[in-house]
């Protein structure tokens, strides 16, 4: 399975995302912001970072990049798209997911191992989890506070569009503890925390078993490969 990883100017986690794809058994394909060609990938990851310097609003300029018009069209056609951190912000600015992300409530950049509850397993990126499972992956952002209108929040809750919720600690003031969303069709998933940083023993979050042994993020990538195998 070919999984595209987009690099914008200012993207930071593209190499980690590509590595996560390979560790899960997929082929990582580098996609470039100025190239509208998706090179026949079967899924796309929009990785974290500070695309275009976070100028104007986080993700706003990246959402206008040539590659994104292709990603938007393909996503509307059902292509699995995962947005991580800045990638989530790009998905929101591209109107593939609703709401907005603002400066953390406490105004500090935050970097921590974050517990999440899996709220929806009916997506290509969450099908290997169990409903209600608690996972731990790193979180690192300055503008991760999720906001939306009351009407949108009601719809997100009512239509089961919340993919992940923060557990124990709400690290940034996100409404309804929202850490990640899916779209109506389920093929587009975005979240602030970083699954690609928890895919290899020795480099992930601490667990009760051993330091840095957490690999809960790997299932995001094995999920999409599984869904591809099922649909192929």
């Amino acid at each position: 399975m070919r999984i595209g990883v987009v690099t914008f100017p200012g993207t930071l986690d593209d190499r980690d995302a590509a590595r996560a794809v390979r560790l899960a058994g997929g082929e990582a394909v580098s996609l470039w912001h100025a190239d509208a060609n998706l090179h026949e990938v079967d899924a796309v990851v929009l990785p974290g970072g500070f695309s275009f310097g976070d100028y104007l609003r986080c993700g706003a300029i990246a959402a206008q990049a040539p590659v994104m018009q292709s990603v938007i069209d393909a996503a509307n056609g059902g292509l699995p798209v995962l947005g991580i951190c800045n990638g989530f912000q790009v998905l929101v600015e591209a109107h593939l997911l609703p709401g907005g992300l603002i400066r953390n409530e406490h105004q500090h950049f935050i970097c921590r191992d974050q517990k999440l509850i899996v709220e929806n397993i009916d997506t290509p990126f969450t099908n290997q989890f169990e409903m209600g499972e608690e996972i731990t992956i790193p979180l690192k952002n300055g503008e991760g506070g999720y906001i939306a209108t009351d009407e949108t929040l009601k719809r997100l809750e009512g239509e089961n569009l919340i993919a992940f919720r923060y557990s124990e600690v709400n690290p940034n003031g996100s409404l309804n503890d929202i850490a990640g969303l899916r779209n109506e069709r389920g093929n587009v998933v975005g979240l602030m925390p970083h699954p690609e940083h928890a895919v290899e023993p020795g480099f992930g979050p601490d667990t009760s078993v051993a330091m840095r042994s957490g690999i809960d993020g790997l299932k995001f990538f094995t999920s999409v490969i599984k869904s591809f195998a099922v649909n192929a």
């Binding site: 275009f52 310097g53 100028y55 104007l56 300029i61 206008q64 990049a65 040539p66």
Partner: peptide, 14 residues
């Protein structure tokens, strides 16, 4: 003005 320049470049491309 890096922010202005980034927005201008994006608008040009559009």
């Amino acid at each position: 003005d890096p922010a202005g320049k980034a927005v201008a470049n994006s608008l040009q491309r559009k």
